[in-house]
Amino acid sequence: MIYGMEKSVLISFRLCMASVLLIALQPACGADWRYEDDELEISAFNRSPDQVASFYEGRGFPKPMIDATRNQCFIVWSIRNKTAHVLLMDLARWSFVAESGLVTRVTRAQWFKLWERMGAPANSRATFRWTLLPETLDLQPNESVGGNITLAAFNAPFEVTMSFAAGGLHAATAKRVQIKGVQCAHDTH
């Protein structure tokens, strides 16, 4: 158990040029990040604007919605609670910090406001909602959760600090995981 202390681990950071053989499986020219210990298994993949656009285009999203996604940075997260107890995830307690300062996260509520203003179709909104990582979740033992975290487009690497609380949101014992060198993906053309 690592509760109450900070653990900073960078497990895997693969650069695009080193993963030429994986390009067929991982079309983005980007990197992926993994973290695993006895309590959590975490992976993250960045998605370029073209990849994000083609995903939503394939689901019939109207062009204004697609265009709105192009201005943001999409990182797909997968998180599994390996413990025998509940871990509370709250994205408001995560931080995204670059050398030059904070990277702004675009929240689910902000997206919904935007879709509301645009008059986006309900089915597209529903699909978009399900592709986002939940803002808060009480991760059950052995439960996995996945989805996008969206950030304001950013050109430099940044550090993600994730916080998971055991025993409730205001619990004194929080597990923190830091992943360094995370980057937004960019289109290669």
Binding site: A122, R125, A126, W130, E143, V145
Partner: peptide, 15 residues
Amino acid sequence: DPDGSNTEHWQPRGL
């Protein structure tokens, strides 16, 4: 559930 509204009522944790 064409517009996803039924699903919202059920509040699944994910799909």
